[in-house]
């Protein structure tokens, strides 16, 4: 019976372990690598090998970093009176891309989820409380997604932070997305959009 050479089979098996990659996709990617310039494949391999040691977690905010601190925490120009709490590094990156916010971040590492069994001790909530006690920020922004899990996590954090003496706790405005048609908006979004209405 014809089998793939062992090094190729190993690459296929390793690729299959990645999220969203099935057996066929893994096979296709492995063949694509074989067809590429060997120097390119070597560069990819070197980048992958360096990944676990080169990328660490920032000791302050738990975002990805190259040293002890991430680029934001190490930047003296950031506004240390503002702390934005997000679920994942990708959320902080999305806010950075908007190019408006100049404060610090705190990465929770996920959201509280009864259905997935993720409790407060599985996230960086204790570290957040410790950090706000040290930093005493003027405002903590709870920028978790406006989902059931995101809302519940934000509400839990509000209680914990309020108990720790933080008074100015905010949540990004929620409502109708840009370009949306009103008659297509769902009940939850409409209620929130009306609750958060502003004077013109």
């Amino acid at each position: 019976m014809l089998r793939y050479p062992r090094p190729l089979q190993r690459v296929i098996e390793e690729l299959e372990r990645l999220p969203g990659i099935g057996p066929k996709s893994a096979q296709r990617l492995a063949f694509a690598l074989l067809k590429r310039n060997p120097a390119d494949v070597r560069a990819l391999g070197e980048a992958l090998v360096a990944l676990p040691e080169a990328v660490t977690r920032c000791q302050e905010c738990f975002n990805y970093a190259e040293g002890e601190l991430c680029a934001v925490c190490a930047d003296p120009g950031r506004d240390r009176r503002l702390l934005c709490v997000v679920a994942e590094p990708a959320d902080a990156m999305a806010i950075e891309r908007a190019n408006d916010y100049r404060g610090l971040y705190h990465i929770l590492g996920g959201l509280l989820s009864p259905l997935d069994g993720i409790g407060p001790d599985d996230l960086t909530i204790a570290q957040l409380v410790d950090r706000v006690s040290r930093l005493q920020p003027a405002e903590v922004i709870l920028a978790t997604s406006p989902s059931v899990e995101g809302d519940a996590t934000a509400e839990y954090l509000r209680q914990v932070l309020a108990a720790a003496g933080i008074s100015n706790i905010t949540r990004p405005a929620l409502g109708l997305p840009v370009g949306a048609e009103l008659d297509y908006a769902d009940q939850v979004t409409l209620v929130r959009a009306l609750q958060g209405r502003r004077a013109m």
């Binding site: 509280l112 989820s113 009864p114 259905l115 997935d116 069994g117 993720i118 409790g119 407060p120 001790d121 909530i125 839990y156 209680q159 914990v160």
Partner: peptide, 14 residues
């Protein structure tokens, strides 16, 4: 039930 175990986790943490 994970959700009930979660409730215990939250109570302990709080």
């Amino acid at each position: 039930l994970r959700s009930l175990a979660f409730l215990d986790k939250v109570s302990r943490a709080k």
